[in-house]
Computed example of a mutant assay.
Amino acid sequence: MRSGPKEYVVAPLTKHPSDQVVRSARLDGIGQVTAVLASAGLTYGVIEGAAEGFAHPAVLLSLLVTLVASAGLPATAGRH
């Protein structure tokens, strides 16, 4: 049985939102904080590393935060 273009137009119009199962999702606060730390540390480290040099203590610290936070991401994702 082949689907024609009519099925692609009519099918979405006939589906009612109440037919779908709604599942509430919990926010993963620890995972969000870990991802933000990893992203912010990397962004700061790359931008300031180009300006100040990658041996600058603030740059090294931000890149260390990035490594630790990135290593922690799989551990926080495994909780759910």
Rank of each mutant, 00 (worst) to 15 (best):
E7S: 15
G45V: 02
H56I: 03
A69I: 00
V21S: 06
G72L: 07
A51I: 14
T66S: 01
R23F: 10
L60K: 15
G31N: 04
V36H: 09
I47K: 05
V33I: 13
G4Y: 12
H56R: 10
T34P: 00
K15P: 00
A50G: 10
A25Y: 12
V46H: 02
G78W: 02
V36N: 08
Y8A: 10
R26Y: 09
Y44W: 04
V68F: 09
R79M: 12
A51S: 15
I47P: 00
A51Q: 15
F54M: 04
Q20E: 08
V21Q: 10
K6F: 11
H16R: 15
A38H: 02
L61N: 13
A58G: 13
L61Y: 09
T14Q: 14
L61R: 14
A50M: 13
H56T: 04
G78K: 08
T66F: 07
V65G: 00
A40S: 10
R2K: 14
R79H: 09
S39W: 04
T76F: 01
A40Q: 09
A25G: 06
V36Y: 08
G31E: 03
G45S: 05
L60I: 13
K15Y: 08
S62C: 12
L67Q: 06
K15A: 12
V36M: 12
M1R: 07
L63F: 07
A58K: 15
V46S: 06
R2W: 07
T34C: 11
L37R: 07
I47W: 09
A25Q: 11
H16I: 06
V21E: 11
E52C: 08
L60D: 02
H80A: 14
P74G: 04
P12K: 07
S18E: 14
L64S: 10
L64K: 12
S39K: 12
A35H: 10
T14H: 05
Y44C: 05
H16C: 04
G29C: 05
Q32D: 11
S70K: 01
Y8V: 02
A51T: 13
M1Q: 07
T34G: 02
R23T: 15
T76D: 01
T76A: 05
L42K: 11
E52Y: 12
D19P: 00
S70Q: 02
A11M: 11
V68Q: 02
S62W: 00
A40C: 07
R26Q: 14
S39E: 12
D19A: 11
E52M: 12
A38Y: 00
